[in-house]
Simulated scan of single mutants.
Amino acid sequence: MNQPETTNASRKAEAVKDRMLGHDAFSHWLGLEIDEVGPGYCRLHFTVRPDMLNGFAALHGGVTFAAADSAFAFACNSHGRQSVGLTVTIDYLEAGKLGDVITVEAREESLKHKVGVYHVRATNQHGAALALFKGTAYRTSNEIL
């Protein structure tokens, strides 16, 4: 991809992110902060709050899953075609703790006409891997913008 195409693709990814975030109350409620988006890519972070902990004072797996799912959504929709998850899996490796800053990074591994595959990694502020998520997205023909 040459420079103007890269710039246009990056602008589209930013515009899609802005459009999605404007209607995504759940990501706002989670406190997700988007650090970077690009074609097939998203990096975000959030801080673990008391209301995100389970009964053992560890980050609830549902919160980790939701943050990974959001990063997946921003990455797979970044090309401007509405995409929906077909299947996702997550492996929990370690639990987050109160006050941890969790970074979630989604990377596109394969992009075809109708299907995209993404790997998402969640780490804490020390770089310890907390979860590995894989998502497969169906790419509809609906343009987002």
Score class of each variant (00 low, 15 high):
Met20Gly: 00
Val48Trp: 06
Ala68Arg: 00
Ala67Gly: 00
Leu32His: 02
Phe74Asn: 07
Asp51Gln: 11
Asp69Asn: 10
Leu59Val: 05
Thr64Ala: 12
Thr64Trp: 01
Arg19Gln: 12
Thr87Asp: 12
His79Ser: 11
Leu44Thr: 11
Phe56His: 14
Gly62His: 07
Leu98Lys: 10
Phe65Gln: 03
Ala25Gly: 07
Val37Pro: 07
Ala73His: 03
Val84Trp: 08
Phe26Thr: 12
Ala71Ile: 01
Val88Phe: 11
Glu33Thr: 09
Ile102Ser: 02
Glu105Phe: 02
Lys97Gln: 12
Thr103Tyr: 14
His79Trp: 07
Thr47Cys: 08
Leu30Trp: 09
Ile102Glu: 02
Ile90Phe: 04
Val101Trp: 09
Val48Phe: 03
Val101Leu: 13
Ala71Arg: 04
Asp69Tyr: 02
Arg81Phe: 14
Ala68Met: 12
Cys76Trp: 00
Asp100Trp: 09
Ala57Asn: 15
Asp69Phe: 03
Ala68Cys: 15
Leu59Glu: 01
Gly31Lys: 01
Lys97Cys: 02
Leu21Ser: 11
Thr64Phe: 00
Ser27Cys: 07
Ile34Cys: 06
Ala58Leu: 13
Gly80Trp: 03
Phe56Asn: 12
Arg49Met: 03
Asp35Phe: 03
Val37Ile: 10
Arg81Gly: 01
Asp91Cys: 01
Phe74Trp: 13
